[in-house]
């Protein structure tokens, strides 16, 4: 048991760092995920993450696997895709989701091509796309912890306006809650959280820890705050178990953590007390009133 669960972290510093980084990510990203789900924006984070790849690739070509370069490149590219899609669809009258899909496919293709052409081998490509525990160096760790701290602090202030804006946008606007402003702050938080996940989870899997626990959380609570707690709990468990699987089975960290979160989602759909499939099958007698 000790060998299975504790020893890997006790022995290897890089695994400990990855664990701390993923834990930090797990307390902030899933909370944002809950709001993304509630705003029917589940795919937005995905698009941001994929769209960031060419920037990450450029950073890789110029500076190798160094956190600040990858991060700066990803930030610029991700924002360009997000803002560009909005502007382009407004200018041409197209639908925004279609424009987003077009742009992120293009970005994904360009990113992979750039890494390959720039002499990055299959190993580098795999690290960037799917993450690597080795990627979580001190700089990345500080970044992940900083992002988590910032996110929680901002969310504490933005909580009421965000809930108000999701539930009843007209009322929020009429009451002067400045929902639009908070929405922009919220989107900025999503971008930095996706980017802080790059190192450990890879660009393809970065949103996994944000969205899967949030989607699963719906089956555990009936209120936003409860859903946020559930999502964080699921994310923490997925991070820990995912890193262990990654270590023992020699799988990249991104897919391992995402698979664990996916498993938690499947369990939630089946057995979750709110709208779960099993509780529905085990029908209890209806109440008297």
């Amino acid at each position: 048991m000790y060998d299975l669960l504790i020893a890997p972290f006790a022995e290897f510093g890089f695994l400990r760092r990855a664990l701390v980084g993923c834990m930090a990510l797990s307390v902030s990203a899933p909370v944002l995920g809950v709001f993304l789900v509630l705003r029917r924006m589940s795919l937005t984070a995905d698009v941001l993450a994929h769209g960031a790849l060419p920037g990450v690739a450029l950073g890789f070509l110029l500076a190798g696997l160094s956190a600040p370069a990858l991060w700066a490149g990803g930030l610029v590219a991700g924002l360009l895709v997000a803002v560009g899609a909005g502007a382009l669809s407004r200018a041409t009258g197209g639908r925004e989701d279609a424009t987003l899909a077009a742009l992120y496919l293009l970005a994904l293709g360009a990113g992979v091509a750039m890494i390959s052409m720039g002499g990055g081998g299959a190993v580098d490509l795999s690290h960037i796309l799917f993450g690597s525990v080795l990627g979580v160096d001190d700089a990345a760790l500080l970044l992940m912890a900083g992002v988590a701290t910032l996110t929680l602090a901002v969310l504490a202030f933005a909580w009421r306006p965000l809930v108000l804006e999701c539930f009843d946008p007209s009322f929020a606007a009429a009451a002067g809650a400045r929902g639009g402003l908070w929405h922009m702050v919220f989107q900025a938080l999503v971008v930095v959280n996706v980017l802080s996940a790059f190192q450990a989870l890879g660009t393809l899997m970065a949103v996994g820890l944000m969205m899967l626990p949030a989607i699963a959380a719906r089956h555990w609570a009936r209120e936003v705050s409860g859903m946020a707690y559930a999502a964080v709990g699921i994310a923490l468990a997925s991070s820990l178990s995912g890193l262990l699987v990654s270590y023992h089975a020699d799988v990249p960290t991104g897919p391992a953590i995402v698979l664990m979160a996916g498993f938690a989602w499947a369990v939630s759909v089946l057995a979750g007390p709110v709208d779960g499939l099993l509780p529905r099958l085990l029908r209890r007698r209806h109440l008297a009133g």
Binding site: P161, C166, F167, D168, M227
Partner: peptide, 24 residues
């Protein structure tokens, strides 16, 4: 215009009316 499926308790909705006085 309301998202009636939003996971929020009734009393919390009523207390949204306090926004102008309490803020965020």
């Amino acid at each position: 215009a309301l998202d009636r499926g939003f996971p929020i308790a009734c009393l919390d909705v009523v207390m949204q009316g306090l926004w102008p006085r309490l803020g965020a």
